[in-house]
Amino acid sequence: MDALALQHYLLLSAGLFAVGLVGVLAKRNVVVILMSIELMLNGVNVALVAFSRYSPVDELAGHIFAIFIITVAAAEVAIGLAILLTIFARRNTVDAAEINLLK
């Protein structure tokens, strides 16, 4: 069994990002779209931490960036779900195709 290389982590990160992207583009339910955004952010975080771990210099910037991404993701999900619940209370739908208030 060969040792783990940076590429293993990068491929995992690309996989998570691509699956999240498909979810964002293809699904109609806003809750699923929010979940997929979380998946994409997680994929990016994996890449950042892997770069930080495998960088030739002793550098923790990747960890710091990941912490900030987690923070922003938490804020984004809170706001997103609040908006979603308000829309659901008024229009009784969570279908992205039916939410066309701004049209």
Binding site: A18, L21, V22, L25, R28
Partner: peptide
Amino acid sequence: SSSHRLWPLGLLTGAATLAGLAYVMI
């Protein structure tokens, strides 16, 4: 949890993104 009518387009975009990223990364 249904998909768009155009979901194959999304799948295609995702697959292309994955292929491109994997190519560059490797």
